Simulated assay, not measured.
Amino acid sequence: MKTRQMKNAGILLLTAIIWGFAFVAQSVGMDYVGPFTFNCVRLFIGALVLLPYIALSDKLNGTDTGKQGEKKHKTGREEWIGGICCGFALATASCLQQIGIMHTTVGKAGFITACYILLVPIFGLFFHKKCGILVWIGVILAVIGLYFLCINENLTIGRGDIMVFLCAIVFAIHILVIDHFSPKTDGVRMSCIQFFVSGVLCLGPALILEHPHLGQLLAAWQPILYAGVLSCGVAYTLQIIGQKGMNPTVASLILSLESVISVLAGILVLREMPTAREVLGCVLMFTAILLAQLPDPGKKEPSSPQADE
Rank of each mutant, 00 (worst) to 15 (best):
W221C: 05
H211K: 13
F181E: 01
D161Q: 07
V200C: 06
V120T: 12
Y147N: 06
V188A: 01
C232L: 05
G242D: 10
T185D: 09
P121V: 00
K184I: 07
I162V: 15
I241S: 06
I144C: 14
L207H: 02
L155C: 06
Y236P: 08
L214D: 05
S191R: 08
G233W: 15
F181R: 09
V143L: 13
F171S: 00
D186C: 05
H180A: 13
D179Y: 04
K184Q: 13
W221A: 04
H128R: 11
L217I: 15
G204Q: 07
G199Y: 14
Y116R: 04
A235W: 15
Y226Q: 06
S198G: 06
L207E: 02
A235V: 09
N154K: 13
V164T: 11
S198L: 04
C192H: 01
I133H: 02
Y147Q: 06
D186K: 11
L207M: 13
Y226R: 09
G160R: 03
Q222R: 12
D179E: 11
S191K: 10
E153R: 10
F171L: 04
K244P: 05
I241M: 15
T237I: 04
F171I: 05
L149K: 06
L166M: 15
F181Q: 04
C150D: 14
C167H: 02
S198I: 00
D186T: 14
G132Y: 00
P223A: 01
F195G: 03
G233T: 10
A168P: 13
I169M: 13
V120Y: 01
W136G: 00
C115G: 09
D186H: 06
T113E: 12
C232E: 08
C131A: 07
C131E: 07
G228Y: 07
I151F: 13
L155H: 09
L146N: 15
C131L: 03
K184E: 05
G187H: 07
R159N: 10
P212V: 07
V135F: 01
A219M: 07
S198V: 00
A142G: 05
L166E: 09
V197T: 15
S198M: 01
F171P: 01
V229Q: 03
R159Q: 08
L238Q: 08
G158R: 04
F148S: 03
N154P: 08
I224A: 05
V188Q: 02
C150F: 01
A142F: 11
Q222I: 12
D179N: 12
S182M: 12
I112H: 13
Q222A: 05
Q239R: 12
G145Y: 03
I133D: 03
A220L: 01
S198P: 06
L209N: 13
I178E: 03
F148W: 10
I151E: 14
V200W: 02
I240Q: 04
I117P: 09
T185E: 02
L118N: 10
